[in-house]
């Protein structure tokens, strides 16, 4: 068995809202009872509609969202961290090892800092280098890896194209020498050419350095091309997880099926065969009882409205949460 770098055991993240009138305080159940294991050196994909809880799960794994229930365990060589209770010097060490990349070219890059300073900032804040020379050497090394040259380092971020801004964000995340990176993609899609370039760069970094990635996207075709393992998220829960090829060849959850068929085909002669998913994702404040997908599931039956489907293993490494997966195949 290969090593697991980070795992979530029955993880829930709840955000309490302010009370309206009397009665119970409403709670956003952004993540609920999540079990995932991310293997060391893997490129782990997380996919789902907007609001399904992908970012929240990613943040919980970076200890940047409250762990309300369950645990997140990080294990690397000699150390084991339980993120729920992590603090002090150990939390500081974890911040070095776990980083976030926003896959949004317009994400906040401080307009008044040069690219060099933007990339160097984590080193200075964490006190990882002891002299300006050392910082500069490290920044240049990383910039080079991300195809940014000396001329780029002197400029300010507004002068850069979307693709270059992305590479600046990546360089900034890499500079502290992390072991684990969460790459979070916003819904607004990038240009396909820039997207391909960034995906290739992230894949290369993973191959060359062995960094483990949690790659968040709403686009299954991007995930399919980049990741070796995929988890599909719906309304705060993982509904299916499998090695990439298995997920596509043995799709076992109706939601995964629906996501797949909603991708517009590049073939003009294959039009309108999408298995349309009606409506929108319900509110995570009052998720539907039983299977959370039952309000939109084309296969839903009476049982789905009351009984929560179990998270079970269909075949080696392939898990699903649906009462009727066998009948889908």
């Amino acid at each position: 068995m290969s090593d697991v770098l980070i795992r979530a055991n029955n993880l829930s993240v709840h955000f309490p809202l302010s009370r309206v009138g009397f009665g119970e305080r409403p709670v956003v159940r952004a993540c609920e009872g999540i079990n995932i294991e991310i293997e060391k050196g893997s490129f782990f994909g997380l996919v789902g509609e907007s609001g399904s809880g992908k970012t929240t799960l990613g943040r919980a794994m970076l200890k940047a969202a409250p762990i309300s229930n369950g645990e997140v365990i990080y294990t690397d060589d000699d150390i084991t961290y339980d993120l729920g209770t992590l603090k002090g010097p150990e939390l500081k060490e974890y911040r070095k090892r776990a980083q976030l990349i926003f896959q949004d070219p317009y994400a906040a890059l401080s307009p008044r800092m040069t690219v060099r300073d933007i990339i160097a900032e984590p080193l200075e804040v964490m006190g990882l280098t002891s002299s300006r020379e050392e910082t500069d050497t490290r920044v240049r090394e990383i910039a080079d890896l991300c195809r940014l040259n000396l001329e780029h380092l002197r400029r300010f971020p507004h002068a850069f194209s979307g693709g270059q801004r992305q590479r600046i964000s990546i360089a900034r995340a890499l500079v502290s020498g992390p072991k684990f990176i969460v790459a979070d993609e916003s819904v607004a899609a990038l240009d396909v050419s820039i997207q391909a370039d960034v995906l290739n760069l992230l894949n290369k970094i993973q191959r060359d350095s062995g960094i483990t990635f949690l790659f968040i996207s709403h686009d299954l075709s991007v995930i399919a091309h980049t990741c070796d393992f995929v988890a599909v998220m719906y309304l705060g829960q993982i509904v299916e997880a499998a090695p990439t090829r298995k997920l596509f060849s043995e799709t076992s959850h109706p939601y995964t099926k629906a996501l797949l068929s909603a991708i517009p085909s590049l073939d003009p002669d294959v039009r309108g065969h999408a298995q349309r998913l009606e409506g929108e994702i319900p509110s995570p404040i009052n998720p539907p009882p039983g299977c959370r997908f039952n309000t939109r599931c084309p296969q839903a039956q009476e049982r789905c409205r009351s009984e929560v489907p179990e998270w079970r293993e269909m075949s080696s490494g392939h898990h699903v949460a649906c009462h009727f997966s066998e009948e889908l195949a």
Binding site: S161, G163, Q164, V192, S193, I194, Q195, A196, D197, L199, N200, D219, L220, S221, V222, A224, H225, T226, T244, R245, F248, L260, I263, L266
Partner: peptide
């Protein structure tokens, strides 16, 4: 052709994504 080559295609997971080189 460059735009089409940089698209991830579900029915062909093995072909590499080839971006149009350089920036606009």
């Amino acid at each position: 052709r460059g735009l089409l080559n940089s698209l991830p295609k579900l029915d062909d997971l093995d072909s590499p994504l080839t971006p149009v080189p350089g920036d606009i």
